[in-house]
């Protein structure tokens, strides 16, 4: 079963843990699987149209899934998915 590494920002939505396992054959399915277990997680990860929140990047095998097939990117069994919030800001 794939594992999702949860950033600190999202941990309150999954009971405070750093990793969540969820079933699924694609990135979208795995994230949706986690959201089924933790609805607040889904609210934080998905836009209302089902797309990924813009301030989050999701990585599989060290590659940003936006540069692969997005939420349709296939996920091998046992793979680790890493979610990183954007590191951003600025003087204005």
């Amino acid at each position: 079963m794939p594992t999702i590494r949860i950033p600190t920002l999202l941990r309150p939505a999954v009971g405070g843990v750093a990793r969540v396992e969820a079933e699924g054959a694609t990135i979208g399915e795995v994230l949706a699987g986690a959201a089924a277990l933790h609805p607040e997680f889904g609210d934080l990860v998905f836009e209302s149209d089902g797309s990924l929140k813009r301030f989050l990047a999701v990585f599989l095998g060290g590659r940003d899934v936006r540069h692969l097939r997005g939420l349709d990117t296939p996920v091998p069994p046992g793979a680790e998915i890493i979610i990183l919030p954007a590191a951003a800001g600025g003087a204005r």
Binding site: A57, F59, G62, I82, L84, A88, G89
Partner: peptide, 20 residues
């Protein structure tokens, strides 16, 4: 990524590289 005098966004692909 913003290449701006008043904003920044760390390139996520470099972010994951730094993490690893």
């Amino acid at each position: 990524l913003d290449a701006s005098p008043v904003a920044y966004t760390v390139d996520p692909s470099e972010h994951i590289g730094a993490l690893h």
